[in-house]
Nucleic acid binder design. Structure first.
Length: 337
DNA sequence: CTTGGTCA
DNA sequence: TGACCAAGG
């Protein structure tokens, strides 16, 4: 979300075979946002049931995670709790951007500009408590465990990783690296086609992993210095220094050693620096969670998706049977090893 | 985003 | 098969 530090890291393409059997801590907010913003009609309208409830995220979750479970990945969703106070400015700014985009979406629709309509519709994506609630209900019935973080979901996901309760963090964002995620996997989807924004061009996208330790070694920095770089560039919790991007930040941190010295050199300040640092170095996490994969609630899924939310019977029956078969395969495998 | 039909 | 595309809810 916040940190623009992605370009500093080396990404390694990875196959699903290599990820087979692994537990993935999924950043729930991140993936739901992606589904909501991308699963839309040409004029930007999201998928909805007959009562006008948005269902784009449910579509995304049922199909993508059926696929992932079928290839042997075991997801654990982590949801955001209460944001740190320092995030208030970011949240307010996002709300303004959303409201503005909503107006422009309407205007674009009126003048029949589909491309603009889609652009502004995506920018107006809003995650409501109902959307999160529906997602959790669906996950439960799919047999996918989820937990609530007390604060930042990414931080909780990294705690799971460090605690041995998952094998990697799955997110498009790089923030988990600031929290110390040893292994981050991006593009965790089985169908690898993605549209290039604004163009009618599609490229093949495959999963890629980022190993934190190797990257720190290659960059010649410590974890603390990576956090310093993130803060210089800007995070959800601070604004960052104007004119300083990832490359400049890396250079300055390597040259000066610490963010304090860099700020002295540039003669600028970052408000509540120690508090921002602490969000990454000692984040608020829950340690008393329980992760339990459950069985597929066939009837519940059919009722929730088809009866309540107007999903196609054929498609959902197929997805349910694939889910059940995948789980059976998993069980058998567990018994053998 | 994913599915599933069509067509070379 | 694989590329392409409309539709999904």
């Amino acid at each position: 979300m916040g940190s623009d530090i992605g370009e500093l890291f080396e990404k390694i393409e990875v196959t699903f075979d290599e990820l087979k059997g692994m537990r993935a801590a999924i950043d729930g907010h991140n993936i739901i946002y992606q589904f909501l913003s991308s699963i839309r009609q040409p004029d930007g309208t999201p998928l909805m049931d007959r009562n006008g409830n948005i269902t784009s995220h449910l579509t995304g979750i049922i199909y993508r995670f059926t696929n992932l479970i079928e290839v042997g990945i075991r997801p654990i969703f982590v949801f955001d709790g209460k944001p740190p106070d320092l995030k208030a400015k970011t949240i307010e700014k996002r709300r303004e951007v959303r409201n503005n985009a909503e107006l422009k979406w309407d205007e674009a629709k009126e003048r029949g500009d589909l491309e603009d309509a889609m652009k502004y519709a995506k920018a107006s994506t809003r995650i409501t408590p109902e959307i999160i609630q529906d997602a959790k209900e669906l996950l439960g019935m799919m047999g996918i465990p989820w937990i609530d973080a007390p604060s930042e979901g990414e931080a909780q996901a990294v705690y799971l990783l460090k605690n041995g309760d998952c094998d990697f963090v799955g997110s498009q964002d790089f923030d988990s690296l600031l929290f110390g995620a040893d292994r981050l996997v991006r593009n965790l989807a089985t169908t690898g086609k993605r549209k290039i924004p604004g163009k009618k061009l599609y490229v093949d996208i495959s999963p890629e992993e980022i190993w934190l330790e190797e990257n720190l070694k290659r960059l010649g920095i410590t974890q603390q210095q990576l956090i310093d770089i993130g803060i210089l560039v800007g995070t959800d919790f601070n604004e960052g220094v104007k004119g300083v991007g990832p490359k400049t930040a890396l250079k300055l941190i390597k040259q000066e050693g610490t963010i304090e010295k860099v700020l002295d050199l540039l003669n600028v300040e970052i408000g509540e620096l120690d508090k921002v640092k602490a969000i990454f170095t000692s984040p608020e996490v829950r340690t008393d969670y329980e992760i339990s994969e459950s069985i597929v609630d066939e009837e519940g899924l059919f009722n929730f998706l088809c009866v309540q939310h107007d999903f196609s019977r054929d498609r959902i029956e197929k997805a349910i049977s694939r889910l059940k078969n995948a789980n059976k395969g998993q069980m058998r495998l567990d018994k053998w090893f």
